[in-house]
Amino acid sequence: MATQTIPLNQNAEVNSDKLVEMFRQMLLIRRFEEASEEAYAHGQIGGFLHLYIGQEAVAVGAISVLQPQDHIITAYRDHGHAIARGLDTNALMAELFGKSTGVSHGKGGSMHLADVSKHFWGGHAIVGGHLPTAVGLALAVQYQHQDAVVLAFFGDGATNIGLFHESLNLAAVWHLPIIFLCENNLYGMGTAVSRASAAERMVDKACGYHIPAQQMDGMDVVAVRQTMDEVVSTVRSGSGPHFVEALTYRYRGHSMGDAQRYRTSHEVKEWEERDPINVFQHILIDQGILNDKQVGQIIREVNHEIEVAVKFAEESPEPDPEALYQHIYVED
């Protein structure tokens, strides 16, 4: 799992812009998560809050290769994917604050971020519950002969639930344009993969369904992008489903209030040394794509965007009481 994978492509002009944008997005996610952690501590955010810190390279690298017509669906650790898809940080933060200006009008919260106009279908809180939905999105693509793929994110924990197996099988039987992207961060809540899964390599679980599968270094955004570029092209060309396992790590607890008795601080520190943002920043500077001054400028812009988002969330109104009974059904 070397982090020194930098065969950056030939077309330097286009690619360096893209690389800088990926760097900016990773920073934006990191800062968004830090700000929401702080707001949670102040009681401004309720419920669960599952932070994506440490895993930024996966969402950013994978989503960077998608087209606007492609579909994305994910689990409850969804802030990073939403930001990488370009959802408005104001509306995202407002959703965490339970405000009417939130992406889901304050009805969904942290685990249920969505923006249908961007084909970002949530944010789903039942482990594995969104995987059949993902398969159905892919069925709709195939049924309507659309030039699109579905990218479904889920964690290692979801691979132990029946829904996962039904979904992989059906996607394979029907040859659907879907990429199952498993973010293996080594723990399903507090239970290590080795204690929960007979197969420790998630890719092995795709074999039984004859779905091509590969691992990638989820701490290396360039590696993620390159792997996903190939996989998405293959699936787009009609190959049927693919499975990708990103080897990654979350630095924070599962949610807030996690004593983290299941791992050592030494282990966390080891992963932090391979921090996807730090490593990528060094690469960009080494390659001459960015200089220190430009990095500083990006950091300031990102910090500002998040400050604005928090302020927007704080100042936004709560949902109107009559919203309680709105949207139970689509009315005629």
Partner: peptide, 12 residues
């Protein structure tokens, strides 16, 4: 997967 799959297709 039948009901969930149909749900996803309906969303789209």
């Amino acid at each position: 997967a039948i009901v969930g799959g149909a749900t996803g297709a309906a969303l789209a």
